[in-house]
Design a binder for these strands. Structure first.
Lengths: 221, 221
DNA sequence: ATATTTTTTTAGACAAATCTAAACTATTGC
DNA sequence: GCAATAGTTTAGATTTGTCTAAAAAAATAT
């Protein structure tokens, strides 16, 4: 695997994320994502095409080649491992990790990343619940579901709360649940659809169906 | 503290190291150190002078200003903390850490570095025995002495072995002592000048005067 | 279906960091 | 003390990544 500049890596990563949703990515879309001018995008697309990292015909949009996807997954692997390290070891909060990881991800040394992975205990998801690609670029599909739909004993990360009333926020705060909290459903009761959950490092406790329906979590499939 | 480019940081760091030994640094010296052409050095010196990071008059050599030294110590702090992390947490060997830290050092985020420092337990020296500047840029003088001259209970790092005979190497290997090994002298016996040492994570053991004289260690004064 | 609008590309400029070759300054040897 | 040598700087070119303004292509609206 060749080395790419920080700039090239940022383009590749942005295209990867955009094409997950949209299929073909357009010049303006990418310009908005990267806060650059459309002319700069076209310039870089020519360069990445010449390096066979993407498919591109003028005016037709672009998408990563298989090689480009592999490069993107390498960058995402580095980014998410560093995010995990920052949250788990350095006690950054879930919303602080992204920005710092944006810089660390560009240090591309295979041994560094594989040893970091091992040191962290081969985590499957980052602090936002997004799956971490393995050494070979394999990545689990990311699923976002509401808590009642989460399989039993599946580790997940709180990613969203649908109801934003102060009543629910008070309750979540009291139970130490917030965006980024690790969550696992241990038991479900069919009588009232309440469930026992393990949240972060707290002992198992019970939450109601009403609450569970409003908590969304992400996990690796 | 402003931000500087990777390139600027590499120049600043190199000047810092060279002027430790030489006082004024010359164009050719720095060119050799950085594997760049003398013309490139002159260009950058003008730039760094404009930023008030160094004193420079054409043909007269250059040296860091106080501000320049502060910047240099910040870079060295980052470099050595990452080296410690790589050796201590990721189990890199002492001779592998430098190259990787050369890249990590350029990620300059104060919170990251201060939290890393805390996570590592505020180490005083890196895996080569060189002292790590603190948050304010204070740095202990680095001392290199042979083992009999090391103060009792002072943590130090093996940095050099003077005799390279296979006999001494065999002995050192047997005692698990090598470059980068942490060493502490626990007790000295005046009868034969033998001493009890703690090496790495091994239990305390005894070494002879002859051996001790050939082991050089570095420590923060 | 064609005129208008939007999107994309091209052309040309600029800043950062590097280089080569030539010019200049300082040092050294005799 | 001056010529030869060694070291340094300048001038101009190159590469990478960005930009603005203008041109070209595609999409859209009547």
């Amino acid at each position: 695997m060749l080395n790419y500049s920080t700039s090239e890596e940022n383009y590749i990563k942005a295209i990867y994320h955009l094409q997950q949703q949209d299929g073909l990515v357009t010049t303006n879309e990418l310009a908005a994502e990267l806060k650059a001018k459309p002319a700069s995008i076209t310039d870089m697309m020519k360069k990445l095409k010449a390096k066979k990292l993407l498919h591109y015909e003028p005016y037709q949009g672009f998408s990563l080649s298989n090689e480009g996807k592999k490069v993107a997954l390498g960058i995402i692997r580095r980014h998410r491992l560093w995010e995990y390290f920052l949250a788990e070891k350095l006690k950054f909060t879930w919303d602080e990790v992204h920005e710092v990881a944006e810089h660390l991800e560009h240090v591309s040394n295979k041994k560094l990343i594989d040893k970091l992975d091992e040191f962290l205990g081969f985590p499957r998801v980052d602090p936002h619940g997004d799956p971490i690609p393995d050494e070979d670029g394999k990545i689990e599909a990311s699923r976002q579901v509401c808590l009642p739909d989460l399989p039993l004993n599946k580790a997940a990360i709180v990613s969203h709360v649908s109801d934003q009333s102060s009543a629910i926020l008070e309750l979540l705060k009291h139970k130490n649940i917030g965006i980024g909290t690790k969550l696992e459903v241990k038991k479900k009761f069919s009588f009232d659809n309440s469930m026992e959950v393990k949240a972060g490092r707290q002992p198992v406790f019970t939450i109601s169906e009403q609450l569970a329906k409003n908590i969304f979590v992400k996990y690796g499939a």
